[in-house]
Structure formats: C-alpha cells, structure tokens
C-alpha cells in the first residue's frame, strides 16, 4: 500500500459518501411537511444522477470482487470491497425503487444505452486479458467497463441545466480517484520488480482522460466562482 493508492481509495470512498449524502438529502427533504425552497428545487429539478452509470458501477464491482471470499488480501481490502459493493447496489436500489428518490431521477434525460458499453467490454476482455480464466476475464471486463462507466453520467450532466454542487463533486472525486491510482501504478512500477499490468494501466489512463474536459470545466467554475456548466 502506498500513499497514492490510499489517497485514491479514500477519494473513491468520498465520492460514494457524497452520493449517499445527496440521496439522503433528497429523502429527508421530501419528508418535510412544508416544501422548503431547497427541497422544492431538489425535487423539481432532476437529481442529475445517472442511474445507468450507477448500474454500470454495480456491475464493475460485482465482476471485480469475485475473489472477495476466496483470496484474502487484508482486512482493509475486504472492508473496502464490501463498502463499494454495498453502496453501489443500494444506490441503484434507491434510484430504482425508493418512492421519494426515484421521483428525482430524470429517466427521459438519462437515455444512454449502456448495454452498448457492456458487450464490447466483455468481448474485449475475452480477447485481451492476462489469463483466460473465468475470474480473470471478468476482472479484466470490470476494468474496461469502469473506464467507460462514467459516460452516461457525463452526457446527463451536459443535458442538466443547473448541476448542483454535490453531483459535480461526486463526478470530480470519481475522476480524481483513478488519477491518483495512476500515480500509484507509477510508484509501484519503480519500487516493485515485475510489477507490470498494461491492461490496468491503459484502462485507468483512458478512464481518467474521459474526465479531462469535465476537470477543465470543474476547475474553471471553481476559479471563476461560477456555477458548473458543461457545454452541450
């Protein structure tokens, strides 16, 4: 474990917590007897969260953590896997099933056909992998899928008029975690002999590059202290 990877995992954890906080806000807000102004805005405008991206991430964790009960790495590793699995599936459940949260989900805008991402990633994983075993192919699939999983969310953000802070921070933290992982891979490459994982590195690089334009607009909105807005 190195500082880059720990920072990456904590950033990833933060992104999940921000999303859970946002869902909690929507839930508690609608529970009020009087519609406060914030609640009104929250409930009227869409949450800006893409269910498609959440479903893709649940699939990423489900296929990546198949070894959670067979290969014990560390208590930290197991706990983090359980957190990511539990949070991703519960977020999908909230947006799909929860009587209040689902109202803030705008399915007419979240139209990305994410099935078109799953199949190519699966085919690619069958062709390019480190070892042709069930677990290894699904693990490679999870890497390819995670690289593109943010696309529905980024496209939804382009369509969302006013991106609220929590959603913007969620996407930023999600992009930042993989950027920190790239530093972790560089560090491990120079400190651990035989540590070479081209598939992981290239997928992680592609994933981070997909956030490039979001990062640009995110930082300029911070610098100019204006609302985050992605060009359509």
């Amino acid at each position: 474990m190195n500082i880059f990877r720990l920072a990456g995992d904590m950033t990833h954890l933060m992104s999940v917590l921000v999303l859970l906080l946002k869902i909690h806000t929507i839930k508690s807000c609608a529970g009020k007897s009087y519609p406060c102004s914030l609640c009104f805005i929250l409930l009227e405008s869409s949450s800006g969260i893409s269910l498609k991206t959440q479903e893709l991430y649940a699939l990423v964790f489900a296929t990546r953590y198949l070894d959670i009960f067979t290969d014990f790495i560390s208590v930290y590793n197991t706990i983090m896997k359980l957190i990511f699995l539990g949070s991703s599936f519960s977020i999908v459940w909230y947006i799909r099933r929860h009587k209040i949260v689902r109202r803030s989900y705008d399915k007419d805008q979240d139209t990305f056909r994410h099935f078109f991402l799953v199949l190519p990633c699966l085919l690619l994983a069958l062709i390019i992998n480190e070892k042709f075993t069930f677990k290894e192919v699904l693990w490679t699939f999870s890497l390819y899928l995670e690289a593109v999983a943010i696309l529905p969310q980024l496209i939804l953000l382009q369509r969302t008029r006013n991106i609220d802070n929590l959603t913007g921070q969620y996407v930023f933290l999600l992009g930042a975690y993989r950027a920190l992982y790239i530093l972790n891979w560089i560090y491990r490459y120079f400190t651990e002999p035989h540590y070479v994982h081209w598939i992981t590195w290239i997928s992680g690089l592609v994933q981070t590059l997909l956030y490039a334009d979001f990062f640009y607009y995110y930082f300029s909105s911070l610098k100019n202290n204006v609302k985050l807005k992605l060009p359509a």
């Binding site: 990877r5 995992d9 990546r64 290969d71 590793n77 896997k81 990511f84 070892k131 992981t200």
Partner: peptide, 10 residues
C-alpha cells in the same frame, strides 16, 4: 513458479 495472480488493488 506458477504464481497465482492475485489482484491486491480495489
């Protein structure tokens, strides 16, 4: 040696 590749990253 047949090293079973264990992925130690999340």
């Amino acid at each position: 040696p047949l090293t079973v590749e264990v992925h130690d990253e999340l």
